[in-house]
């Protein structure tokens, strides 16, 4: 089964096909709720508990049995957290790194993916295989030499060190190539006869028709970059160059027992990711399925 075919069948509520057959009811609701409701509670528990704790006072948090409902909603923890660590700086850094990486991946993966999909040039198959092969190599193998390369380029402990190695991903090239190949080639031929240049064909015909694939790549790349921990841990050193993930570990370490503050920081760090998730769930689902299917 092809990747696209499978990725396009991803279950999403509106598209779900499974139908509950009428059966003799021994409950006023589907018995599946008895399984799914507790399951959903367990999955949401860590998140809900994080939010509840972020609104508690320090005393309430360090109480056993735990205070399940705080006496009052202590929103002050959020500004306190922002004051006790350079969260603003870390947000900005993470935002700069993530947006640069996403934009550059969209551009470079589109160009390369299109060439691999449609242009017949010398060395195409060999180059493509070489790029695909890099997908098999785990990050641990390359992280030490990549550190050395970044150091040699004079980028160590700077935002470019976080950006440069991630400007383009072989995965993105592969994904877009697969998608471009599903588009009807006559559209591109018609555009060429209409007088469009190669870049014109790509930007005016192919990319507008590939918005779902581009959105998928964008959200997946955003998630990878926003959440990445290991590479920033290696590539930057000073707190002013930290990303949120690095900052959180430091913040948690220095505020070990101040859980309401730590949770407030944690909630804030997740907000952009969660907003994106709820705004573009469909693309997350498709992207995750594609990520999995690339293996």
């Amino acid at each position: 089964m092809t990747m696209e075919a499978q990725a396009d069948r991803i279950a999403w509520p509106e598209e779900a096909e499974a139908v509950e057959r009428p059966r003799r009811r021994w409950l006023p609701f589907s018995p599946w709720h008895l399984v799914l409701f507790p399951l959903a509670l367990i999955m949401l528990l860590p998140l809900v508990w994080m939010i509840v704790t972020s609104l508690e006072t320090q005393a309430e948090s360090l109480h056993f049995p735990p205070v399940l409902v705080p006496g009052s909603l202590h929103f002050g923890n959020y500004p306190s957290a922002l004051r006790s660590a350079p969260f603003g700086r870390w947000f900005l850094n993470t935002f700069i790194v993530t947006s640069t990486v996403v934009v550059s991946n969209l551009l470079l993966c589109s160009l390369a993916g299109y060439a691999f999909a449609r242009i017949r040039f010398f060395g195409r198959a060999a180059t493509f295989m070489l790029l695909l092969a890099t997908l098999m190599v785990p990050f641990q193998v390359v992280m030490i030499p990549t550190f050395l390369i970044v150091k040699k380029l004079g980028l160590f402990d700077s935002l470019p060190a976080l950006i440069a190695p991630n400007l383009v991903s072989a995965f993105g090239i592969f994904m877009l190539r697969q998608f471009f190949r599903t588009l009807p080639v006559e559209l591109e031929e018609a555009a060429r006869i209409d007088g469009a240049s190669r870049l014109g064909v790509l930007f005016k015909i192919v990319l507008p028709l590939s918005l779902p694939a581009l959105a998928t790549l964008a959200v997946i790349q955003f998630m990878w970059t926003w959440n990445d921990f290991l590479w920033p841990l290696i590539a930057v050193f000073s707190q002013r160059n930290f990303t949120l993930q690095l900052g959180l570990t430091v913040f948690q370490g220095s505020h070990d027992v101040f859980w309401p503050l730590v949770m407030a920081g944690n909630v804030m760090s997740m907000i952009p990711m969660l907003v994106l998730f709820f705004a573009a769930q469909r693309y997350f689902v498709r992207g995750i399925a594609t990520t999995g299917l690339k293996g």
């Binding site: 031929e189 555009a191 469009a196």
Partner: peptide, 20 residues
């Protein structure tokens, strides 16, 4: 000469209209 510079027009079997 590339297609764009030939000054010809073509009608495709499946029309190839730009869907967007």
């Amino acid at each position: 000469v590339s297609p764009r510079d030939r000054d010809i027009a073509m009608v495709f079997q499946n029309y190839a209209l730009y869907p967007h």
